[in-house]
């Protein structure tokens, strides 16, 4: 079979087999839908509750995308500052690490208490989870410029800004994009976790609050439908960022080259 066809058909077949087995098992063992709904009921729920779930998806998606944008912009800026001064990097990098390794669930309640605006507090939580890969990767990339090229730039009297703009930034682009790809998934996770902590109260009810609410009410098919939407969103974000990365690097970077025949 052709490689490209196999890439789509093979995982699709596995998925369909698992779904069929799942449906069969649920019916054969007569498992009630509030314990484990079959794929058919989940699909029906997704159809009937679709409009209201899509509204919730938009709430979560908005937090995710704004958090990702903030992670990209601020993370990139922090990395540029780190690359300009070794002392600055040594001074502040450990705190970026601390912010990264402290579980967001444990800081989220504080942030939600301190920040009155729900959207803003959720945004801050999602940003804290998402910014680190951009900072760490971009800093590494900015410092990985070819030594001989740096020497060449200096030989021709390049300014600090010229070295940054024409050498360090393009060298860092693949690293930066790899960081953004990780951050995309993390921003979604951060948004969901923060929503879980914030609970179902408040006006903004994202997908995570819908999952909680469905769990309390034993509306398990809707819980699954919301879960499915979350997964699809994560996949879409990843695919979009992968496409962007490929489009920006296609001309020159090894990672974007087609495989050898």
């Amino acid at each position: 079979m052709n490689e490209r066809v196999a890439k789509i058909v093979a995982p699709l077949t596995v998925g369909l087999v698992i779904l069929a087995a799942w449906e069969f098992l649920v019916r054969a063992a007569e498992i009630p839908p509030y314990i484990l709904p079959g794929p058919v009921i989940i699909a029906q729920t997704l159809w009937t509750d679709g409009p209201s779930l899509m509204g919730s998806l938009w709430v979560t998606l908005r937090i995710t995308l704004v958090a990702l944008a903030a992670a990209v912009v601020l993370g990139g800026l922090i990395a540029v500052l780190f690359a300009q001064s070794r002392l600055l990097e040594l001074s502040f990098f450990p705190y970026a690490v601390i912010l990264q390794v402290t579980p967001i669930v444990s800081i989220a309640p504080l942030i939600i208490i301190w920040v009155n605006d729900t959207f803003l507090s959720l945004l801050i939580c999602a940003w804290i989870v998402a910014f680190f890969p951009v900072v760490a990767n971009t800093t590494l990339g900015l410092n990985s410029a070819d030594r001989n090229l740096v020497a060449l730039f200096k030989l021709y009297g390049a300014s600090r800004w010229q070295i940054l703009r024409f050498l360090r930034m393009p060298s860092a682009l693949p690293y930066f994009l790899a960081g953004v790809r990780i951050s995309g998934g993390l921003a979604l996770i951060g948004a969901v976790v923060a929503e879980f902590v914030a609970g179902t109260g408040g006006s903004a009810t994202g997908l995570a609050s819908r999952i909680l609410e469905s769990g309390y009410r034993l509306e398990i098919p809707r819980l699954f439908a919301a879960l499915l939407l979350l997964s699809l969103t994560g996949i879409l974000i990843f695919a979009a960022l992968s496409w962007l990365s490929h489009a920006l690097l296609a001309h020159w970077h090894e990672s974007a080259l087609p495989e050898e025949e």
Binding site: N148, A151, P170
Partner: peptide
């Protein structure tokens, strides 16, 4: 006015 040629071509791959 000096020019330098390194052992590797030392080109910018993105350009």
């Amino acid at each position: 006015r000096i020019s330098f040629v390194f052992q590797e071509p030392t080109l910018m791959p993105w350009a």
